[in-house]
Every structure is written in structure tokens, then in C-alpha cells.
Design a protein around this nucleic acid. Sequence first.
DNA 1: GACCAACTTGTTACCGGTCACATTCGGGAT
DNA 2: ATCCCGAATGTGACCGGTAACAAGTTGGTC
Lengths: 371, 371
Amino acid sequence: MPPGTAPLDTGETQDARREDPSSEVTPGAGTVATTAGELGRPATIRDVAALARVSHQTVHRFLQGYEGIRPATRERVVEALAALEYRPNLTARSLTTGRSMRIGALTHELDQFGPSKIIQGAAQAARDAGYVLDILSLDMGDPEEIDRALETVTQHDLAGVLALASTDHMAQAFGAANFRVPAFLAGEEDEFASDHPSQLTSVGFPALIDHLAGLGHHRLLHLAGPSAWSAARNRARAFETAVAGHGLVSDGVAHGDWTARSGYEVISALPSDLGFTAIVAANDQMALGALLALGERGLRVPEDISVTGIDDIPDAAYFSPPLTTLRVDFVAQGRRAVEHLLARIAQREPADDDALISQLVARRSTGAAAR
Amino acid sequence: MPPGTAPLDTGETQDARREDPSSEVTPGAGTVATTAGELGRPATIRDVAALARVSHQTVHRFLQGYEGIRPATRERVVEALAALEYRPNLTARSLTTGRSMRIGALTHELDQFGPSKIIQGAAQAARDAGYVLDILSLDMGDPEEIDRALETVTQHDLAGVLALASTDHMAQAFGAANFRVPAFLAGEEDEFASDHPSQLTSVGFPALIDHLAGLGHHRLLHLAGPSAWSAARNRARAFETAVAGHGLVSDGVAHGDWTARSGYEVISALPSDLGFTAIVAANDQMALGALLALGERGLRVPEDISVTGIDDIPDAAYFSPPLTTLRVDFVAQGRRAVEHLLARIAQREPADDDALISQLVARRSTGAAAR
DNA sequence: GACCAACTTGTTACCGGTCACATTCGGGAT
DNA sequence: ATCCCGAATGTGACCGGTAACAAGTTGGTC
């Protein structure tokens, strides 16, 4: 279903008004009493009250779901509400209550699979709880960017802030920040650790290494992400742990920057005599680059060498060959982060969550070790 | 630089307060006069005024950049502002002014390359203009989703709404909606049309077809997107036009759904005797699927058949083989959409924009036509 | 029919900026 | 010194909800 693309147009425009003089207006009933949908200011609670010939407070009570309103009164309110197409002004509401129903999400690299999926999950969870997720996508690289974002955040009164930090730099900046509202600083979900509650080897990083070991691989190369990323470190650590646990040999760690290009370059630069028989890339993109580099070196995958990724991006199933990888549930991570934040906002303990466990997805990029 | 992934953590938390009793408090100067960063209510304009021994209006004037404030007075205000760590309350501001500095962006499929890049550009442009972009990612498929989103939009008073419609369904829903604020409904940027102002054949869709023609290809297959997407129709139309313009033969149009899977399945399902020598996919993902399917059919790319995509997603350069494609500037599209909206909000004419022209990126997936 | 409690409804003030208007201040001219 | 005028500053109301409290109704009881 998902499209690969969705660009924009020359721009149809539309006006923010509508002709619909379907309702009656009480003549002289206050300043406004505009007809529904007219271009004038939207109806307020007092306009509704005037039309219904009650006090604004009665309208307010109705909107709050208060039961003790006489049926006759209630009916007039309902009618006025409909006639004026009343919509509560959330700005005014949050000014008095001091609470808003908006959560700010500070993130970056939104064009990447992981972050965007996390945001998707977070947006879902927020919406389910009646909140709106305001996404503030930071442009890293600009050092002032974070400061400006924080400034923004503190001004738009938010119910809470979700700070999605991927790198140490961001984590540090967020950690030092004074958001003035409940904040939840989320970093890397360490779901690859082998000391996980679940001892199953059929899932998670151990499953991946187990899979490779079962195919006869002994020497493995880890193609890691940049070490400033907690995700990269966690994955590298999980790799080492799992390798050691299986009595295999790590042939060292090469560092890329998550991109396919870096995977390509790292593998291309390797000396001609590869000591390992399998490459465990820290994400699918780098695995993609590795596949290309291996092909150019005349090595077949998986006959000569096996390659695995992490994430299971949608395209991974259609690489040449289709990539064996660990599926990560980013959406759940985003949802969980919001739930934690909501708990914090409500000043209650967050629900214990199940461990997120990545799933091994075996495809054709892994095969029996050569010779 | 971009990461392939960025998951979350077990959740470091942080409190929204800070110990910093660095500033002096005027004893008894009003109700508040809290020390900076304390957990009490944030300082208001009146708190600042009390501390500076001026009226709230003077503080207001200062904040507005009013020049006519006596130096001595000004200094007291500046000090009070700093001491109390004053931050304007944008909620209160927009309540009175009736204007907010927030733009809502209705979109969907945010996990896809095109949409996320568009949003990135839109967020940039919005920020440059001092606005914040509130991203409302819709979950298509749920028919009520759009209605709820519209409800949300009308309640959170926004300066304007950017409706990014990819499909006819969404365009229709947005078109029928009453946003009550300036709105800009953006659809597919038709940058592939061959009747474009620019007659250059070195860019855009004609360049792609020209490239293929130059390699000796005569019969081409278009692997199109779902026809409910305006982008799919535009690209298909541009394909037909360009093909006709070069005296080539279109071998028909096959429809996918933008995914690699659909590209794979469509190409796999083709009869064994392919009449064409090149596949022009409407996006890179489908081209990826096509590459895999062709490989499985024993066809080499580009020796036996050439394949092209559209978008130039970052991974396309590392497909096996690297994909010849048209690079589309989604970021610019997003930026442009926001600029149009801002013009509409300011009730001025939008600046004429240059035509967006996709660039041919020739890589190794295209080669001389077989035989 | 009077009286009281419970139920309905209304009144007023407030949130934190902004706006329109009023008032006070300061310095030059007389 | 006095007067005047523009510059500087202050006052009060308002935006659209919400909250606290007050007032008006209703119904039941004696």
C-alpha cells in the first residue's frame, strides 16, 4: 500500500469559508450570532449562550458533559451549538487551565525509516489519548538549532515534551535543557542485549548470530554505525556479546555512518583477503551498500559471503539478494515513549512494558559458509 | 550522515525544573516574583513589570521593540526579564491577536521518502518565517481519520493549513473541508510534463527517455503507480508524451502500488517473451523490485534489459546495479507549498516560482539495448 | 401556603498577553 | 517661574474559555 513518493502540486487553493445560511439567527441577540460557516469570527461560547437564551456557563456545563441541565434548556443549547457550528477554542481553554493537549516531539532525521516510524507510533499513541503531537524536526549540524527549538518549545505551552535523542550530542543537549514541562528523554531502545529477560535464542540479536552459526559461519565482521549514536553502540555490544556466547570470532568492527554509501565504501576498502565469511551490518542501508561492494569484488552473496542487516526496512525484502535482517518495531517504540510521557504528565507510574524484541527475518542473503 | 535508524531507550527522565537561585527577588513585589527556573508558574509580563517597577504595558512595549523607552527604565526591564527568565506565553498572545504562529500540515505516509522530504522542506520554510509546523500525519484507510483530523485542525487555532494530498480521495476530502483558516491544498507537482516552459531535453522526463533512446531502446514498459495518485498519473502521462516525442514505442503500462513488492510481482508475472528492452518505473522502490524479479528470471541489467526509477532515493545509488533515475527535489516542493500558504495568510500574491525540474541521474542500470 | 433543601442557572473574576486611551513627565520657549 | 507639547508611562478592558461562588427555581413537607 505505501507509496514510494508523493509530491506536490501547482496548488489548488481553497478559501476558509462556506456558504451555508441554513440556520436562524436571533436578531439582536448579542454582537455576533452569525450564521453558521460565515466568514466572521467563529462562534464563542457566549454567542451560543445568547442564541440559546442561557448563560455562557450553562453552555460550558453542557460541553463538559454535566448532567443536571433541564431537558428544555439542554435542547436549546444543542440547537444553538449546531446552528452556530460551535468549535471550542483550545487556545482559550489552555490559557485558563494551564494545560494543553499538545505534546511536542523533538526529533531529527525524519526522512529516515527508524525515526519516521517512531514518530508514527508516537503520533498514534498521542492521538489515542486525545493529544496532538507537534513534531519539531531538528536540523542537526546547526548548533543553534537545538537552542532555538528549545526556545520554541518553552513558548508554545505544551503538555509535555518527547525528546528523541539518537546521538550523544542530542542526548546531552536535551538533558541540559529546561523544558519547564514534563519531558521524556528517549534514547536507544536496547533491545538487542543478550542479557534480556527473554532467554529465547529464536529472537533478537542472539537469534541472528545463532542463524549464522548454524550456517557454519565462524568469523564475522560487524559493520557498525557511528559510535556517537547510542543505537550503534548498543548494536555493536549486542553483536560482541552474542558472538562470544556462540564461541564465534568477531573479525573486528568497521564503522559506517548508517548510509548505503558508507557500507559500500567500507567494504570496498577492505583488503582482498577477507578473513570473515559473514557481514553483520548495523542497519539495512549499510548492508545494501555492502551487497553492491561485494558484487563488484566478484563475491557472490550468499555463496561466498553472507550479509545481514538490522531494521527490516520495507525494501530489504527486495534487495538482490533479499536481505536477512532483524525486524525492529519502531512504531511500538514511539508509542511506548508517548505512554511514558503521558504517565509522567499525569504523575502516575508508567505501565510496565514488555521487552521489545526484534525478530529474525531470514532471507536469501545468508547461506552456508563458504568451504 | 543520515542514520538508517534511531530507536528509543529505556527512558531517561528529566524533571522540568532547575535549581538556579542566581537572581535577586524583590521582596513583596507582587504575588510572584519567583526566582528564575523555580518550579512555580512561569513569570508573566506583570511579574516582570512588578520587579522592574514599571507597568506591564512598558514591558510589553519593550518586548515589541518599541524604541521610546528611557534608558534607565529600559535597563530595569531588561534585568527583570533576565532575572525571571521570562518567556512569552504564545497561547495568551494568540488568544488576543487571533493569530497564531503555527501552521498545520496534513499529510500521510510520512514514512515514505517523498512525503517526509516534503515535510522537511515545509518545516524549514515555516521556521524561517517564524512559524512552527504542526504535522498531523493521517492514517489513511480509516475513513473517519480525515474528519477527526479536520476537527482537530479547526480547534487548534492555526494560522493556516497545508493540506498535502497525494490521492484523489484525500484531495477530495480536503477540497470539501472547511478549515476556517487560510488553506493551501497541494497535490502533485507536475514537473514531468514535456510541455514545460523549459524545452531542454537534458532535464526532466524527456531527458530520461532521451537517454534511453540514445542507448538504442525502442520499446519501453512503464511501471506506473496506482492511478488514484495524481503523481502516478502525471508520471504516466509524461512518459507517454516523451515516448511519443521520441518516436519510441510504449509497450503499455503496468500498475504497481509504489512498493518494491509490487514492482517485483508485476515484473515476475510478465510473460516470458518480453517485448520491451527497458522498464521505466514510476519510482525507485518499484524499480528495486523489478531488478530483483529480472534477476530471478535470468535477465541481466543492463545487458539484457535496462531499468530506470524516479525520485533518486538515497539508496538508489547502491542498488545492484545502481539505478538510473530522475532526481526530484521534494524539499523544494515542501518549501514552496509553505511559501504559497504564507502568501495566502498574509493576503498577498505568492512569488512566482521557478519550475521545478527533475534531474537525470544516469547510473549503471541502463545500458545499450540488447541486440 | 410557608419553608427548606436540592437542583438549575447566573454572575463575576481570572488566565497572560494586546489594544485603545488616559495620564504623567520632562524640557524648551516665553 | 510658567506654560505647553510631545515623549514616556500607566490604566482598564478584552480575547474565549474556566472556576468559584451567588442567586433563582423547583419540589416536597408540614
